[in-house]
């Protein structure tokens, strides 16, 4: 799966869960850039991504991502 394709799909998840209609995320986006993205909404996003891509993240992965790009990479790796 393409990076841009994954990014587009998780952008929709972010919009839905954080409830910000015009939110645009990039691979560089971090939790510091978005107020609504806190440790609790992070879990909601993680669970939604697991459902969307039919994968399961490890706890270390969930806690280890530094930005959206690393999330995207994990998803691509797990979908191979």
């Amino acid at each position: 799966m393409e990076q841009t394709e994954v990014l587009k799909q998780i952008n929709d998840i972010f919009i839905d869960i954080l409830d910000i209609d015009n939110l645009v995320i990039t691979t560089e986006t971090t939790a510091n850039d978005i107020d609504e993205w806190d440790s609790l909404t992070h879990i909601q996003i993680v669970v939604a991504m697991e459902k969307k891509f039919k994968i399961r993240f490890t706890t270390a992965e969930i806690q280890g991502w530094k930005n959206v790009g690393e999330m995207v990479n994990t998803i691509i790796a797990k979908n191979k």
Binding site: S39, L40, I43, Q44, V46, V47, F57, T58, T59, I62, Q63
Partner: peptide, 16 residues
């Protein structure tokens, strides 16, 4: 129950 959610957040109920 989801172990990853529990370990990360101290929540024992899954989102679902």
């Amino acid at each position: 129950f989801m172990s990853s959610v529990y370990v990360s957040t101290e929540m024992v109920l899954s989102i679902d």
